[in-house]
């Protein structure tokens, strides 16, 4: 069971790492005056990452739920087919 959890964790990390690297590249965005107003302050003070993390946590939670539901149905399928 513990092995399985470790396996899942390392998979999740493998999925998340490239995303974090990409996020670094996104920092290059610069603001300018006399142009349509954008949320430059939110980006400058870094609070945008709070929003990103909140959304990533919610999405991850939903995915964990859906994956567990998927596995439960798989188990049920095996049980019904097996007998």
């Amino acid at each position: 069971m513990k092995n399985k959890t470790n396996n899942l964790l390392s998979r999740a990390m493998a999925l998340l790492l490239p995303l974090l690297l990409l996020a670094g590249a996104a920092l290059a965005q610069t603001g300018a005056a006399d142009q349509p107003e954008m949320a430059d302050a939110l980006r400058a003070n870094g609070k945008i990452y709070v929003v990103v993390l909140v959304i990533v946590i919610i999405l991850s939670g939903l995915f964990v739920y859906l994956v567990r539901l998927d596995r439960k149905v798989s188990r049920l399928e095996r049980e019904v087919e097996g007998r």
Partner: peptide
């Protein structure tokens, strides 16, 4: 794809547009 969408959707570059803004 969806984690990528959430992260890059918020942090990625978008053109500066009037009315629509962010």
């Amino acid at each position: 794809l969806l984690l990528y969408t959430a992260v890059m959707g918020l942090l990625g570059h978008v053109p500066r547009l009037a009315i629509l803004n962010e």
